[in-house]
Nucleic acid binder design. Structure first.
Length: 297
DNA sequence: GTCCAGGTCATCG
DNA sequence: CGATGACATGGA
């Protein structure tokens, strides 16, 4: 196989290994593969899967793709990597905020250069938020793998099989009885179908959502889907649109980390959580991401 | 055995 | 309205 390498300079305050640590958390992830410092993944472009790999060397990302891919597809891969690792963001204001917030200073020192690793596909983010509701992450990844391997397409690249998240079409037609045998609850199956139908029948798309100007209306567009509550809506807005003010209220990991850092004394004290985020205006989503990161030590 | 996980909805009072 | 139970399973 003949490949071509594209280099992408990394910005200040970017640390590939911090990002790798997040990607490699020991969970049974099925939407990308890791091999040493190489990240492998496939995106879909005009109906075909485009596989690529990413590594870093001397302050540059090296992105490898098959040399036969079109210029347009190559652009899509670059755009995807850019979004996935939130490369274009200037983190310096966030780090200034962290440095003046005493309780958060350790986060800055420990995770410097960590980017908000996103989920560029809105459909994938919403389905993942449904899958992850109320169950531990080990189990959630297991459920996701079953869904992806059953309904998603895959392609081989550099000795790895790379799966792509299923389309709304394929999940709107999912086999409920089969997923029941795969330990999906009735609720999750219905909610995933609802999300798929919102895309197919109600005009939901990442583009349409991004065109809604204000945060509350975006959130309402998502919570209108049965199965998407405030947590899921904000999770998706944070991971897909990098919406700064999206805070997944009710998240157990979030409250746990705030408790660990002694920012709140009582895990049920929501006003204290709201007050804390008042201090982080514009960087709430990043703060949440760093707080989650802090749970892994 | 118990309790809680990267929640949400339906169904009460 | 706010409170409560069901959902499915695994790990501590």
């Amino acid at each position: 196989m003949v490949t071509r390498t594209i280099t992408l300079p990394t910005p200040d305050l970017f640390d590939f290994d911090q990002c790798l640590f997040f990607l490699d958390r020991g969970y049974d992830e099925c939407l990308y593969q890791l091999s040493d410092r190489l990240v492998l993944r496939a995106i879909e472009f005009e109906g075909t899967l485009i596989p690529f790999s990413i590594t870093e060397k001397e302050g540059k990302l090296l992105i490898e793709i098959e040399s036969s891919v079109t210029v347009e597809a190559q652009k899509q891969v670059l755009a995807y990597v850019n979004e996935w690792f939130d490369i274009d963001r200037d983190l310096s204001p966030f780090y200034e905020l962290l440095s003046v917030t005493k309780s958060l200073k350790p986060l800055l020192e420990k995770y410097k250069g960590l980017r908000l690793i996103g989920i560029p596909s809105l459909f994938e983010a919403l389905c993942w938020s449904v899958i992850g509701q109320q169950i531990n992450l080990t189990f959630a990844f297991k459920l996701k793998r079953r869904l992806v391997e059953t309904y998603g397409k895959s392609i081989k690249f550099k000795g790895h099989t790379l799966y792509h998240f299923p389309s709304p079409e394929s999940l709107a037609a999912l086999d409920e009885d089969y997923l029941r045998t795969q330990q999906y609850s009735r609720g999750k199956i219905k909610y995933i179908k609802n999300v798929a139908e919102a895309f197919l029948n109600h005009g939901l798309s990442k583009k349409a959502l991004a065109q809604i100007p204000d945060f509350e209306s975006r959130q309402q567009t998502l919570t209108a889907i049965k199965g998407i509550g405030v947590w899921s809506a904000n999770y998706a807005l944070m991971k897909t649109l990098h919406q700064p003010e999206a805070i997944p209220f009710g998240d157990t990991g979030l409250t746990q980390s705030l408790y660990n850092l002694k920012i709140i004394a009582d895990r049920k004290d929501e006003p204290a959580i709201v007050a804390f985020f008042e201090e982080m205006k514009g960087w709430e989503a990043y703060t949440v991401f760093y707080l989650w990161r802090s749970l892994a030590g």
